[in-house]
Amino acid sequence: MNQIVVVGSVNLDVVLDVDRLPRAGETVIARGVRTNLGGKGANQAAAARISAGGVTFVGRVGADDAGVRLRDELSAAGVHVDLLAQAPGVPSGVAYIQVGAGDNTIVVASGANATFTELAPAEVDAVRAATVVVCQLEIPDPVVEQVAQVASGRLVLNAAPARPLPDAVTSRCDPLVVNETELAEFTGTDTGSVESVLVAAQTMRAQGVRSVVVTLGGAGAVWVDAGGSGHHRASAVPVVDTTGAGDLFVGTLAAQLAAGAPLSTAVSVGTAVASLSVTRPGTIASYPTPAEVAAVVAGVSTR
């Protein structure tokens, strides 16, 4: 049995490296272009596999060359892809990413991901058997709702991009992972400070979410669960590329939870590991090695 099952999106990333992000209506010249495996689901699966024993990915690719490449690259990252199905008649998802001055913009053409509206019987079995199930909102609502219904283990939902969710989904989240902008959309409250983020996260938990984690970029992350709440600060590091850092955080968090770590520890490790990746270019290419993650875990455990 696999500890972690990730149900989500997989895209071919087309990344343009620019000196700065263009303003509306402006043309800039890229220093270079690269393509690689991406999508929140695939990134989170690859991130979880760095320190988890078994990770299975459930998703959809098109019947095209990109689909073959995405399957091969996800498998090369150590993720089981037997349940990565082919959607006939549509292309694989593609994300167009601009990276400049340590920041990025992303536009996604969902492609095959948009056809993923129901779990097949074998996929239901895998989700039901998993210790931790990870999901995001780059796939249609019906499959997210089905995942919440059939998962018997812990459900980690990265609610991005943010949109309204039924109580049947949010009540299963343990944790619901959002950034401060997404948290503001869910709660309609100010999230301009760590204190206001904590209040908003506690409000969400009082409304039925089992636990909440809020990522704050360079300011770290906040967590709230039945045992309390806290704020883990991120290390001050030179930022090269933030693409995929949030997905690395989620995948690392899931791996720590699957290993039995309390939420506070999982958030601390995820924050530290994500800080490593932003110092390097690329998405999955920037992710740390198992030894680097193990060193972070050892450092957290000795605090």
Score class of each variant (00 low, 15 high):
A261H: 08
S152V: 15
S193Y: 06
V267E: 01
W223L: 04
G93Y: 02
V7C: 03
A120Q: 15
G260T: 09
E180L: 08
T27F: 13
H231Q: 03
E182Y: 04
Q146M: 07
N2H: 15
A129N: 13
V18Q: 14
D241C: 03
R20I: 10
P238W: 04
L216V: 11
G32P: 13
N36G: 15
H232K: 01
P121V: 09
L198K: 07
A184F: 07
P238F: 01
D19H: 11
R163D: 10
Q149H: 15
G25Y: 11
D64A: 11
A77D: 13
G270Q: 04
R210N: 09
R20S: 13
A76H: 13
I97M: 07
G39Y: 00
V250D: 00
L198S: 11
Q136A: 02
P238R: 10
V132W: 04
A46N: 09
V79T: 09
S235A: 15
S277C: 10
G208W: 05
P22Q: 08
R303F: 09
N11A: 05
V250Q: 00
D190E: 12
A285T: 08
I106N: 12
G246Q: 04
A160N: 04
L70V: 14
A245Y: 02
D65C: 14
S110N: 09
D19P: 12
G93V: 03
A122D: 15
A295T: 13
V55L: 12
T191K: 03
S75L: 15
L137S: 00
V199N: 09
T265C: 14
Q98I: 08
V296E: 01
V250G: 00
V33A: 11
P88D: 12
F57A: 07
A285F: 06
D65T: 15
N179L: 04
A148F: 08
G111V: 05
L276D: 02
G32F: 06
S301Y: 04
I139K: 00
R172I: 01
V18N: 14
T131I: 13
A76V: 12
V81E: 12
G244Y: 01
A52I: 10
V273S: 07
S92C: 08
R205F: 04
R154T: 05
P175V: 03
P88K: 10
A30P: 15
V240Q: 02
V199W: 06
M204D: 03
L137E: 00
S268M: 09
P290C: 02
T35C: 05
A160M: 08
G41T: 07
G244R: 02
E185Y: 12
F57W: 08
V127L: 06
T191F: 05
N179M: 05
A76T: 13
G62A: 06
I284R: 05
G220F: 04
K40T: 00
G192D: 11
E180D: 14
P161E: 08
V79W: 03
D141T: 02
R210G: 07
L165N: 01
S301M: 14
L198T: 09
A109I: 06
P140Y: 01
V239E: 04
D247P: 07
V212R: 01
R20V: 11
A85F: 08
